[in-house]
Design a protein around this nucleic acid. Structure first.
Length: 114
DNA sequence: CGTGTGACGCGAG
DNA sequence: CCTCGCGCCACAC
């Protein structure tokens, strides 16, 4: 019997998408968090790459970069694309700080680092 | 096949 | 709170 454990690149990507789709509306998760939940403890770069592919129907806007233990920030380099993400998040009632940070205590999907 | 880069994360100073 | 540096993984050249 083959290993049920996915080791193909497609399976890994599918796992990442599954986690992203599981993020509730109005909440956000960090790349590291998504990677860990997808079975990739150090695959944050992999998650970023997967988000960049930007498949339709995926709430990619809910995946954000981690600023520190209590805040997160949009990691997209493209200013226009970043503005789009912020707009989408605000449409979901996700609030931004004056500096453009998201309070994880308030919008974080799961507790990040105690 | 070696090198550089990127929608990242974390420790150290 | 700030900046700097390294680790991580996949891909382009």
């Amino acid at each position: 019997m083959k290993k049920q454990k996915p080791t193909g690149p497609e399976a890994v990507t599918a796992a990442i998408y599954a986690v992203v789709r599981a993020i509730p509306r109005g909440c956000v998760a960090t790349y590291g968090q998504v990677a860990e939940l997808a079975g990739l403890p150090s695959g944050h770069r992999r998650v970023a790459r997967a988000m960049k592919t930007c498949p339709s129907g995926l709430p990619w806007q809910r995946v954000v970069g981690r600023k520190d233990a209590r805040r997160a920030q949009i990691a997209i380099q493209d200013p226009e694309h970043a503005a789009l993400q912020r707009k989408l998040l605000e449409a979901e009632k996700v609030a931004f700080d004056a500096s453009g940070f998201i309070v994880l205590r308030r919008h974080g999907w799961l507790p990040i680092d105690l």
